[in-house]
Amino acid sequence: MPGERSQRFKLGLFVVAGTAVLILTLYIMGTRKDMFARSITISADFREVNGLRTGNNVRYSGINVGTVDAIDIVNDTTVRVRLNIRMDAAGHIRDNALANVGTDGLMGNKLVSIMPGTGEGDPIVDGSVLRSAPGLDTDAMMRTLQRTNDNLLSITEDLRQLSERLNDPNNLVGMLTDTTMGDVWRNAVHQLQAASGNARALTDGVNTLVTDAQQGRGAIGLLLTDQGTEEDVRRILMDLRTAADTLGLAIGRIDRFAQGLNNDRGLAHALTQDTALAGDVRHMMGRLDTTTVLLNEDLRALQRNWLLRKYFKEKEKGRR
């Protein structure tokens, strides 16, 4: 019957279409998961793998090069992760490379990231074991960042008050002649000491941050796959560096200045003997001001970023 023939044709078409879609999908997924490509197996030991599972991606310098094949607990402090690495990528990875468990974005899948190690190494072979690098603790980093910024703000505030007084010639003369000068100066010295203390804390913080970020060089890239966020963070780190350097200089000067104030010859001496200082302080004020503005902008940008929003929200709640 012709009707029956066309029915069979349509049915055939229907089944073939469905099967084709399925097979094509499986094939595409297969090539992506390297099911059909040749690969070698290496492993890496971690203290913990943070929810990594078999099948997760392995990246080398941000490129997918393989998948996690198996995860075994070796002993109470070591988890061994077996990785399938695509043959063509394996040639570029050296055995001194560092492996690291990261996240594809903050909400994404876990993945293993391999970063080039320092110095010479041989290409990995089947069975190579990679060392692992400590991961990046985002929360700790953000806390330091926030603290550093607070420090910076209070320094700038202290210095601004001081420089206002220094800048006003009337005030300066007033200060010199005023009988209450003692109080005023004690105040100023106090501010300066606070500033210098804060500045030291700030430099420490910045140092931690920068080392953290350097250690997690790969990790920060992984953590912040979002281009915008990564740029934000990199800029803020750079600005913090500048601020810290400037402050390093400033602190030396301020220390000396403060010491000058404290000795018997007093302010008048300090001002007249070390006129360069006043200029320096003013100059540094200008630089610090610019940096602070920049940093504030950076921080605000960071706060807008959804990845870090949770952190700032909690902070705000804590404040209230």
Partner: peptide
């Protein structure tokens, strides 16, 4: 396809 894996399908 970046997101889909065999165990989804």
């Amino acid at each position: 396809f970046d997101s889909l894996i065999f165990s989804d399908l």
